[in-house]
Nucleic acid binder design. Structure first.
Lengths: 335, 335
DNA sequence: TACAATGATGAAAACGTTACCCAACCAATC
DNA sequence: GATTGGTTGGGTAACGTTTTCATCATTGTA
């Protein structure tokens, strides 16, 4: 019941192992009838090359690591799936690891991927200011594609433009008469959160709406994201709430329900990265959306490009976000 | 800039490569001072063993394949993440592939994983009646853990009990006075869909509610899942709708909105596997829920158990589903 | 004291593949 | 007819581990 090797194939086909290897790797170099004989032998033996042996020779594993804080987040899962698809088409396998938002686990995962000798790593990190993490990435000797993060490392980048759509959203709310805005995020020190905050604040100031309210909730105990009362009641409660991600959109909706506030009559809301669940609410929730499939595919393409030539200049792809208008925002008469 | 090998470590530590190998793999067998010297050398060289070389000797890759029709589905992603976590703790890496609901791609993926020499495969398949797929699984010579599928192959199983909670749901609706029920699914020939259909029909018959309405929509063109008009209007329209998965729950909600039907006043609805998004709706949607983290972890545990001993008897784990009552069902007066 | 048993380490071979170099053959060219 | 050059194929070594067996030193026992 042993697996057949290149030697078995060679023996059956009456050639040397070298020729078999050539048939597998550079079919042009071997005469057509010989090749046929070899292919025939391969089929009859159910041969498939031993990648471990191959990569020991070539120092290539044809595998890419994908590291994310949370694979079960729909956005990350969508990116992972798209990346996997694109990589698979190029003959690469994807190893997935998740860190549960713990930088030290990301360091450990990088070490693991190093041990695995992956040819490259695509990653989301959960904290841009973790020095050990930055060192671990910098010390990694394979190509890196960084997803939507701002890190002082040499890597190709896939970024989203968070600012433009966020600015639009703020101006849209301002145009509806909203004066008090709140942005509700997880307290992560990562590019999307930071950019959104910045854009939110700036656009609000430009529209004469400052100060805005910035709420940041812990990322990790994902359960029980309860928002404080003064976000909903009292004279200073914001009339428009922008929530980042499905869990926080849910927290906002639960708060609104609890205080018996109706959307969009009493409050306007906008979701960010809430994808297809934006249409579960009544009315459907206006949201800022990105195409995660494109993000994942772009990451894979950057990686493949880099694997093709290490000396290429660094490249960054910036992908747009879009505001999708639905029915969750309305004119307000609060002053 | 070459990576250091076991020989480099051996040279620095003044021992033979064998001893280094022993320090790495069976630390007990080597004297404490020697071990210290070796560990020191490993650290100073930044040594990590070459897994390709190791697996060429041992025929073990310490990697597990995870195959799913759709990684971006939140339920599958949650299972994948939990499995990965549990596998990682045991020193295994997880390779992820998705088939996009195409059995032929699942066959190809199995072949790929075979080439990769994974030590085991955890998989969801997208069609229980695809003969080629069954053959491919049966022909795979590594341990298989099958997730919630009914296939004539030798494998350990992680199943969900779909029937009990579905029966409860039907009786609950019957108790509220509903006489006409509909179950809306994707048209997949897989255990969860089949079991749910069976349980739905049986429980309805037992409650004197037959016939029920069974709607099956194509799984693959995921966009534009539009439900036909007669599901919502007309004398025979069901008063209660049970929808499987987030996309179909969304389709139901959109239909209800379109025909200006309110939940729960005009229609009662129940979601299945809609997880945390059930609480995005107003009122929150009553749903049948499973713990996908437990599913993923169980799959990993079954796999690790099997890898520990191939001769163990096959095991199946059956995990419960639960109905979570919220506000989307109400007494009906329709007759 | 001699001998067996135990423990710690090393030498050599093997895993399956590819890189490198060379040989044989044939055709084309001078 | 000798030389050159291209095509096709093979022999050998090497990749970095672990396995197997042997060696040596040390301890315990009769």
């Amino acid at each position: 019941m042993k697996r057949s090797t290149i030697k078995d194939v060679a023996r059956v086909a009456g050639v040397s192992p070298v020729t078999v290897s050539r048939v597998v790797n550079e079919p042009v170099r071997v005469q057509i009838e010989t090749r046929e004989r070899v292919l025939q032998a391969m089929r009859s033996l159910g041969y498939s090359p031993n990648l471990a042996a191959r990569s020991m020779r070539t120092n290539l594993t044809r595998s890419i690591g994908f590291l994310t804080p949370e694979l079960s987040s729909p956005t990350n899962a969508a990116v992972a799936q798209a990346a996997e698809q694109a990589l698979a088409e190029a003959g690469y396998t994807m190893l997935v690891t998740s860190s549960n938002y713990r930088p030290e686990r990301e360091v450990a995962a990088l070490e693991l991927l190093r041990t695995r000798r992956v040819d490259g790593i695509i990653l989301y990190v959960s904290d841009e200011e973790d020095a050990a993490l930055v060192r671990a990435i910098e010390g990694s000797d394979v190509p890196i594609v960084l997803l939507d993060r701002n890190l002082p490392v040499s890597a190709d980048l896939v970024l989203s433009d968070h600012a433009a759509a966020m600015g639009e959203a703020v101006r849209y709310l301002a145009g509806l008469g909203h004066r008090r805005l709140a942005l509700i995020q997880r307290d992560l020190r990562i590019r999307p959160a930071i950019e959104r905050r910045r854009a939110f604040t700036q656009a609000a100031a430009a529209a004469g709406l400052s100060p805005v309210r910035l709420v940041q909730l812990p990322a990790r105990p994902l359960a029980s994201k309860t928002l404080s009362e003064d976000l909903f009641v009292g004279a200073k409660a914001p009339s428009a709430l922008v929530a980042e991600g499905v869990p926080l959109l849910r927290a906002v909706l639960q708060g609104l329900r609890h205080y018996q506030l109706a959307v969009p009559r009493d409050r306007s809301i906008i979701g960010i990265d809430t994808m297809d669940v934006s249409s579960l609410t009544t009315p459907e929730t206006t949201s800022i959306a990105r195409d995660f499939e494109v993000i994942g595919r772009s990451a894979a393409e950057l990686m493949l490009r880099r694997l093709g030539d290490r000396d290429l200049p660094q490249k960054r792809i910036v992908l747009e976000s879009q505001i999708v208008l639905k029915g969750s925002c309305a004119v307000t008469f609060a002053i």
